[in-house]
């Protein structure tokens, strides 16, 4: 049975890597041949080379650090304000009635639409970049926090009032723990959005540093290997960050013994 399991696992892994390997091989073959695409398309090996060169220079690490810093700043601002705003709207029907329509109306504008306006208002600075990233995190976190608070089962409120829970105690002991799974969903989504909008911020609001800037620079110099290396960097970093946050979130949930159901 054990052997059968490992056989199944091997099969699964083989299935997963079959297509990527086939595509990369095809790519390498195309670039080896005399196709016209050769002029544009670097071989996978060339991309790997570029990758190694990039990482051997402190420059690239600095670009990555700047991007990470940018995302973290925006994400933190967005999540703190988003959780606070979502809690307020969830707790008070009046606050919801006053702010929700405006919030939803503003939300209709795709993030990217704000770019020209904030560039005009703030210039090509770090502020608009961080701002737009934090707004990207703000929306899903607000929405999920609000939904989480509103979906706290009425039974819990009854239990709380029977036991004399009120005010901050009610919020801290009942409402926040009960809506934690939903808030966590918001945080995971918010992070993904931040990371996605980071690219928008770095490509559209010109800056000297950042992975997005590197990709854009690759395009300007017509260095496709650099562009592809940048894309891979961004993908891997985004994925690692998502994994990390999911781990933290799971640990928090387990610590609180809150079921995700």
């Amino acid at each position: 049975m054990k052997m059968f399991d490992s056989y199944k696992k091997t099969k699964k892994i083989l299935g997963a890597i079959a297509l990527p390997i086939a595509l990369i091989t095809l790519w390498q073959l195309i670039t080896l041949g005399e196709f016209s695409a050769t002029r544009f398309l670097p071989s996978p090996y060339k991309v790997l080379q570029t990758f190694v060169t990039l990482f051997s220079k402190p420059d690239y690490v600095h670009h990555i650090a700047v991007s990470l810093q940018r995302v973290m700043a925006g994400f933190l601002i967005g999540s703190v304000t988003g959780i606070a705003f979502g809690l307020l709207m969830g707790l008070s029907k009046t606050v919801e009635k006053i702010f929700a329509p405006f919030f939803h109306a503003i939300r209709q504008v795709p993030m990217i639409g704000w770019i020209p306006l904030i560039i005009m208002l703030f210039g090509m600075n770090e502020l608009p970049r961080v701002l737009i990233i934090s707004v990207a995190a703000f929306y899903p976190i607000t929405l999920n926090t609000f939904a989480g608070v509103r979906n706290v089962p009425n039974e819990y409120f009854e239990l709380a009032s029977v036991n004399g829970y009120k005010g901050l105690k009610l919020i801290g002991k009942i409402i926040i723990p009960a809506s934690l799974p939903s808030i966590n969903t918001g945080i995971t989504t918010g992070l993904a959005m931040s990371w996605s909008i980071l690219m928008v911020a770095e490509i559209f609001i010109q800056t000297a540093f950042g992975v997005g800037t590197q990709i854009q620079r690759g395009r300007d110099r017509f260095d496709i290997a650099l562009v592809i290396a940048g894309i891979i960097t961004v993908g891997v970093l985004g994925y690692s960050m998502t994994l990390l946050v999911q781990k933290i979130v799971k640990a928090v949930e387990r610590g609180r013994a809150v079921s995700t159901d």
Binding site: L19, I203, V234, G238
Partner: peptide, 29 residues
């Protein structure tokens, strides 16, 4: 399940890249 095993991981991997990062590449091609 077979197609899922073949395409699933690739799509998941590609999804990790923020869509706007593809833009410079698309424009180059």
């Amino acid at each position: 399940p077979l197609l899922n095993r073949i395409f699933g991981p690739l799509i998941k991997a590609l999804q990790q890249v923020p869509e706007f990062a593809w833009m410079p590449l698309i424009i180059m091609f």
